[in-house]
Structures are given as C-alpha cells and as structure tokens.
Design a binder for these strands. Structure first.
Lengths: 330, 330
DNA sequence: ATCATCTGTGCAAACGGTTGCACGATGTAA
DNA sequence: TTACATCGTGCAACCGTTTGCACAGATGAT
C-alpha cells in the first residue's frame, strides 16, 4: 500500500540501505547517487515510516510531558500551558514529538508504561511525582522535573524558577516604596513552591510577620484579607501567592475604601493576562515560563544524549513594576 | 537488554505467538496456559514494546492535536487548554496517546508528516487549517475539526459549540431584563466564530445595531466602550465576545460612573476563572469545553474505526446568569 | 467406529526501516 | 609497480511484535 524504502531504492537503482543512509546523512554518498535517491523520493512522495524507524533505532522520537491535573482548571493554569508551549516549540525544533499524559501517577503505572513501552525517550515530570518509589523504577531513564521536588532535591534532575528570590525581591521592593508592615497572602502551605515563597518573604521581611494561607480561591483570599484589613494595625502591603489572591485582596480594599497603592501596596506572583488590566494594574513577580520550558527540554536532550548527569537549573524571576506598588507614582 | 515477548514465551514454555495472543486477548487460550504466561510476564516485569507493536499492527496508538498558536498567550487560552484536558482524558481512556503539534501548518508539512510517517492514527485540527489543499492531501485519513471551518463546512468533519445560538440567547436574556439598546463588543471580524456570534446577535436584536469590533485586547475594548458610552444615546447593554472585552467594558463603566447592572447590562462569552470574581460577577455564555473535547475524540475514534463518514456535531451553549445582567436583582 | 468440526498452539513470514561487515574501486605513498 | 588506506555501496541480520496458515488433539454427529 504505502511506498517504502525499497520502492525508492528500486526506482533509484540502489540498495535500500543506501536510501537509508541518504535519509540519515550519516555516511558519505556520491552526490550523483544522492541526487537520484532524492529524485526517486520526490517522485514517489516517500515518507519514512517513523514506527519502523523507531523500532530499528530504538528511539521513539518523542518526549512525554506528565501533568497532575484533577480538573480542567488545574490543567489550564497559565503556568503550565505557557511552559508547554515552549516545550513543544523546543522539541519540535529538534524533530521531537511531544506527548502529554495527565494523571499519570494515579494509576501508578502510566509513567512506567511510557518509559518501558518505549513510547518516549525522555520525560518531563511535575514535582509531585518525585517519590522514592518512582525514582527506583525510573532508574537512569532520562527525565527532568519542572519545578523543585520536595524530596530528593539534590539527587534529581530539575529546572525551576527561584521562588525564594522572587519573594525576597517583592518584599524589598515594597520596603523601598515605604511600606512597613508587609503580609503574605494566598497559597496552600503544603505546596513546595508556596513554602519557598514564604521562606523568601521571611528572609527579607523586617516587620511583623503575617502569613494568610488560603485554599487557593479568590473568594477565600477576599475573606481573609477583609478580616485582616479591618483591624487597626493592619498590614500596609501584601505579597500575593498568585493573581487570584490579589484579586480577592483588591476587592477587600475597595470595599473598605483603602486606596491602592496609597494605603495598601500589592505585589503578586504570576503574570496573568489580566494582571495589567486590573485596577490598579498589578506589580508582578514574573516567571519566565518560556525560558523554563525551553531549559527543561534542552536539559532533557542533554540527558537523552547522555552528555550530563543529573543537574539542577534555577532561573531567577523578574519584577514587573506597575501601579499597585508605586506609592510615589500617584 | 530489554525483556521481549520471546523471553516470556521461553519462561512460560510456549511460543511467542501464544504470548501475543494472551496479551491481545483476541484468541481463545486455555486458562492454564494463560495463567503461566501471566506469571512469566509478572516475573520478568515484561512490558510490550509499543513501537514493535505499532509497526506490526500498523496503528500508532496516538492521536495528534494540532494547534495554531503564534505565542504562548494564544496557546494558553482557556478554551483550548480546557478542551485539551478533555481530549487527553478521553484518549487515555481508550489507551491512546495524545501528541500536540503547534504551528503545524506554517511549514506546510507537519500535518502531512504526522499522518504519512504514521505517527498518529487520527488528527484533531483547528478550523484555520481547513483549506482545499490540506483536504486533498488528507484524503480519507481520520480527522475532526474542533470548531466550524469557514470553508468546506458541509464536507468536513467537525465538532463545535453553537455560537450563533449562544449570542441569540444572550440578547434575549438582556431583552427580558429590560435592556433596550444592545451592542456587540469585541473580537476580530475575520474570525469565524466571532462572525457567527455577531450573526446570532443580529438575529435576536430588535433595537439599534451597534457592533464594536476590537483587536482582541481589553485595552482596545475599554477605549471603544468608553467612547460609545460617552454619547447621549449610548447602548444600555453589551454582549461581549470574550472576558477581556468585558473587562475593558467594566473599566469604562466604572470611570463614567455607570452602574452595572442598573444602567448597563453585560453578558460575555467564555467562562474565565475570574469571571465570577469580577465586580459585579459576569453573566456568561458558557461553552462546554469538556464536552467539546470529548465529543471530538469520540467522533475521531468512530472515524478511525471507519464506522462513520464525515459528521458534524453542534453543541449548544449555556447561559450562566450572574449579577452583571440581573437588573431586578439589585 | 468414522468422519467432520472445532480449539489451542506453533511456525514463519511479514511490518519497514537501520547498521555491521564485506568487498570492489579508487587514491596515495613507497 | 606493489602495498595499503579510503570511499561508496550492497548484503543480510536484526529491532519486537502480529497474524495467516497448518496441524494435532478433542469433541460431536452419525
């Protein structure tokens, strides 16, 4: 049915191994022969069967991106999808396919299946999957964790943005703007990156320490912020764990007639598309998700080619200053 | 190196073809034999090589999801990533892998490569790729378009939500709430789904027709809405093409001290995570992205199994009524 | 008891490439 | 001229499955 390498070989008057070598460019071939092969390929509209290729070469030509999302909302968070965009781009540039696999850990087997059934040559994993059991089965199969694992931090291979540094930067910025009493708002305490952001907050904070952890919703952030702001000695600035928290906070400020940034300063993590349209526009600790995605793929390829051992890459974050924290500005 | 079907066969004392039949369950096998094979598989921790399997069976066991995103923002739009979540889920339930491929049309070849190199058994395509040239090369390869193609609408296979009906529903709802002069705000005119929403708006609208197309940004929506609302006989309600447009509109209303929903009613397409936290919470024409994704995969599988010809599936939308359009409520 | 049918399993040929080895032709140095 | 690399290509084994065909033994009908 489909045209194979043998058909091309016959038409070009050479052996199929020669065609293979022309395609892969690994051997020296007479320009004349090469031309005849190319011509035959063109004439027959030949496309090599990647499955046969993979079987023979032992390489699937794909990488797997594992996600751990319960629902569509978790899956569609900007952090993840922006990184995925960069991952796909970098992989495509190297001729690799990207396979996404959600909820891979739940059945306890999908990650293992992806590797052992030779569906992928390497994996990009979320930090939550990093557990001793998995690391045992993964052996020296190439993988990169996108984020900092809570455990086995120094023995695994990962790429992350520096959340601690980001929070420190946020606090220092607020301090420079003259805010005195800075609080931290939002995020589940149990999540690693929240913990690290809070640590950064604590490192840089010199005033009273106020940490208001939420369940992750804007609603909850609103409630907690409202209560905190009602008190007499309320905080005059907040570092928010994400845009949702900042959104709840803004609402609370509005209702209590506290002006932002005059009375309350706000810096939030994550640059949501809406952040700059908020009222006032939000100052943001921006995570370079594109760089994060790209670096993770590059590192993964180095691992696949066995050029390096486990490595850790920490990218720094950027502060995007907007009106919500610029006291002098207004 | 890796354990193969032959190792299992040897240990179980049978032929490898028997092992294959046990795995695939297509033939009748003596319970006793079956048990021995399973035991051997367990003992050796055998995982069938999917590449060899695919080569022999001619099926890759993967579907490709093609996207057309220039940048990370376009890629991470909630519509797409929510659908992708559902697609992945439905595919996984059938034991299929999901491969994502971005910008596949640009090089003019990636879609073709995915099919002709046997990387996928079927494709989910964005409407923008549907052009006569592609349909020629795609032949009877299984595919489903996620959205309504602008061309070849009746000859292609697609799944979409009923944008026209959604807009009609929005207008009728606003009319019932007593709004008289309803405008349409947002969206590029050239995009198919925007056109269809506008058609729905026109179908149901009985007052003056006002269509304010934007470049897609909240900024632009703000500007256009501001100008429109400054006039004496300004609209008293808007159907917004997306949440961003609604966001710009809300800002304009606030600055002009027009209260929502008393003076201005708003309904917007797409249920962004922040929509219900806005002030006031937005009434939404909700698209069931999960259903959209699932239906497209189910249809694709029917095509792969050659059970059906090209089909079109149109899903209706739901109105989620919140404060932004409930005049009587407040 | 005989013959036809059915069941479970083995054999071997695909599936469509890659690649180590061999070998003739050509080039280079003595 | 001889001896020895080097280069380009063919041969054939191999990657790990699936599957059509064959066949022996069990089953059932007559």
């Amino acid at each position: 049915m489909a045209v194979t390498i043998h058909d091309v070989a016959k038409l070009a008057g050479v052996n199929s191994s020669t065609v293979s070598r022309v395609i892969n460019g690994k051997a020296t071939i007479t320009p004349d022969t090469k031309e005849r092969v190319y011509a035959a390929m063109r004439e027959l509209d030949y496309h090599p069967n990647s499955l046969a290729r993979s079987l023979a070469s032992g390489l699937s030509g794909a990488i797997g991106v594992v996600v751990n999302a319960r629902d569509a909302e978790a899956f569609s968070n900007v952090f993840f999808s922006r990184s995925l965009f960069a991952i796909e781009q970098a992989a495509q540039a190297r001729g690799y396919q990207v396979i996404i696999a959600n909820g891979a850990q739940s059945r306890g087997g999908t990650i293992e299946a992806l590797m052992k059934e030779h569906k992928v040559d390497g994996l990009i994993l979320p930090p939550t999957t990093v557990k001793p059991a998995l690391m045992d089965t993964i052996g020296d199969f190439p993988y990169v964790v996108l984020g900092t694992p809570d455990t086995l931090r120094s023995e695994t291979c990962w790429v992350d943005n520096n959340n601690e540094q980001g929070a420190e930067m946020a606090v220092r910025h607020l301090q420079k703007q003259g805010y005195q009493c800075i609080a931290y708002l939002g995020g589940h305490q149990k999540r690693g990156f929240t913990k690290r952001r809070i640590r950064g907050y604590q490192n840089a904070n010199s005033g009273t320490e106020t940490i208001l952890n939420t369940d992750g919703t804007a609603e909850n952030a609103y409630t907690l912020a409202f209560d905190a702001l009602k008190t007499d000695d309320h905080p005059d600035a907040f570092v928010c764990n994400d845009n949702l928290a900042a959104f709840g906070l803004l609402k609370a400020c509005k209702e209590l007639h506290l002006s932002v940034p005059q009375e309350i300063g706000i810096v939030a993590f994550d640059n949501y598309p809406l952040a700059e349209y908020m009222d006032p526009p939000l100052t943001i600790v921006d995570i370079d998700t594109a760089m994060l995605g790209e670096q993770s793929v590059q590192l993964l390829f180095r691992r696949i080619e066995n050029k390096v051992g486990n490595q850790q890459i920490m990218l720094s974050t950027n502060l995007v200053v907007r009106a919500s924290s610029e006291r002098k500005a207004k």
